[in-house]
Amino acid sequence: MREITFEAVKNAVKTNLIKINYNLDDSFVKRLEDARDRESQSVSKSILDDIIENQKIARRGIIPLCQDTGIVVAFVEMGRNIFFDGDIGAAINAGVSAAYEEGYLRKSVVKHPFNRENTKDNTPAVIHTKLTKGEEIKIKLAAKGAGSENMSKVVMLKPSDGIEGVKQLVKDTIFKAGGRPCPPIIVGIGIGGNLEKSALLSKEALLRDLDDQSSDPTIRDLENTLYDEINALGVGAMGVGGDITCMGVKINYYPMHIASLPVAINIQCHANRHDEVIL
């Protein structure tokens, strides 16, 4: 049985959160450069140029990519054969607190829905923990901004709405959101389970690699069709009209009640900050 300490978890979380707030993933930057080259509208193209230039400046490590350094989301997988003497949530929050202080990141979390008092260290993170096999702790981390999160939603469709109903809902949501979620966006869709399960599926979908395709042929086709149809909406970078509205569509699904078709749409902005740490 391997022992993993509180400090090890805290430090890994801290280092990773600082890294993602200053360094956009290289393969994602490549995708943005391809998108800029393909864009035919001049204002949208100029915005994509700014986004690419911005990540170069952020990479120097002085100023983060975006002023909304997000609320932290953590998906934790705890191997059964590790020994961790303590509260994993507390270790993650200690990492968040250290990262947002030492990394000069904005503290964007308030305690209460109405008095809006800031917690001053960006904790608590939103943490989902699951027990798995093995001798590792795996933590998927995201710094999730509110601009795109606020344009996300869960809708309980009827089973008879089917695939066309899902497509229409997704396209309506993205068209109405316009420039607010900071396109080009990534769209995570959760279908099935129940109300809260669909929302979790949509968040997990956003954390998938953009090259990853669903193993289910129907779902894979829907990911590809929605990618084309969302881009055909013409929303463009920051909503100004253009060919590039989305960089990827990922769909996760789960069994559901015979009477239900829950659909969650979670939107990620172009400051696509997430990573995975394994201890």
Binding site: N54, I62, C66, G147
Partner: peptide
């Protein structure tokens, strides 16, 4: 007016 959302480092300069 709109400025480029997410270009926080560029605009800081």
């Amino acid at each position: 007016m709109i400025a480029t959302g997410g270009a926080g480092a560029l605009l800081a300069s």
